[in-house]
Amino acid sequence: MGRTLPSIAQVFLGEQEAFSRFRRALRRSDQLVVDDLFASAQKHLAATAYAAHALPFETFLLAMLLEEHKETMRLRQLIEEMLSPTASPSTQEQT
C-alpha cells in the first residue's frame, strides 16, 4: 500500500543498516552486544512510532537505555536480596 513515510519497522531496519560498517569492524563478542542493544530498542517500536520524533535514532537510544536500566534494577534487586539476610527477619526487626 502507498505510504508517504516509511513504517517504523522500515525506519528501524534503516538505522540498524546505517551502523553495519561500525558493527562489522567490531570484535565478534562486541557485535553480539550491539545486536542485543538493537533488539532491546525493537521492543519499543510502537512507542517510537507514536513519538514521531524527527530523529528516530534518539528514541532508539533512549529505548536501549530504558532496557539497560531495567536490567540494572533487576540485578540490583537480586544482589540486595543475596546480600541481605532473609527478607522476613529484617522486616520483623524493623517492626
Binding site: R3, T4, L5, Q42, L45, Y50, A52, A54
Partner: peptide, 16 residues
Amino acid sequence: SALSLFYGDQGGLVYQ
C-alpha cells in the same frame, strides 16, 4: 509542515 506530517501520517498503535 513536515513535523505535522510525522504526527499525522501514522496508523494504529501496534505493540510488541
